[in-house]
């Protein structure tokens, strides 16, 4: 091997090994991403709440808001797959200790939001009301086990 060849080989090797290090995603990147996914669920449910409690003439939109939740629900497992419970997050480490239960809880949101979408598309307000409670129950079920209570939220720790 000539010195040039050795140099080139080393250069190629160093690029190969250093590139992934430079590209490594931090826990913060994952945390911020999944907070946006979950925040979208809150926004969609909040929008449905606005329509109902303020009697906005937009009940035809409820089904689509529910579909947003439904699509998001399907993203939860992949969004949380990466274990990161430290830092600016309210995710409890129980998520990764009991991953199957967490996935099941996310699945419940998928089912409940599908029901709400269906009720929404039929425009049956009583069924919509029940289905909203179902979604709320799915949110709470998962939050009680896997999210820090609000008083312990990173947002309140100074």
């Amino acid at each position: 091997m000539t010195r040039l060849q050795t140099f080139l080989a080393l250069a190629v090797l160093s690029i190969l090994f250093s590139a992934p290090a430079a590209m490594a995603q931090s826990n913060e990147n994952y945390i911020e991403y999944r907070q946006k996914v979950m925040g979208a669920n809150g926004a969609a449910m909040g929008a449905i709440g606005d329509i109902i409690k303020n009697k906005l003439p937009l009940s035809g939109n409820i089904a689509d808001h529910a579909r947003v939740v439904n699509i998001n629900a399907k993203l939860i497992a992949s969004a949380f797959k990466h274990d990161a419970s430290e830092g600016k997050t309210d995710a409890k480490s129980e998520i990764w200790k009991d991953w199957a239960k967490f996935e099941e809880a996310a699945k419940k949101l998928e089912t409940a939001s599908a029901k709400l979408a269906e009720a929404g598309s039929k425009g049956d307000m009583a069924a919509i009301g029940d289905a909203i409670k179902g979604v709320g129950g799915a949110c709470k079920g998962c939050h009680d086990d896997f999210r820090k209570p609000k008083e312990q939220s990173y947002k309140n720790v100074k």
């Binding site: 669920n41 449910m45 909040g46 909203i132 409670k133 709320g136 009680d144």
Partner: peptide, 14 residues
């Protein structure tokens, strides 16, 4: 009080 969802669309806890 009807749904357990607050104005932000978040669930009542505990």
């Amino acid at each position: 009080l009807q749904t357990g969802l607050d104005p932000q669309g978040d669930s009542a806890q505990g």
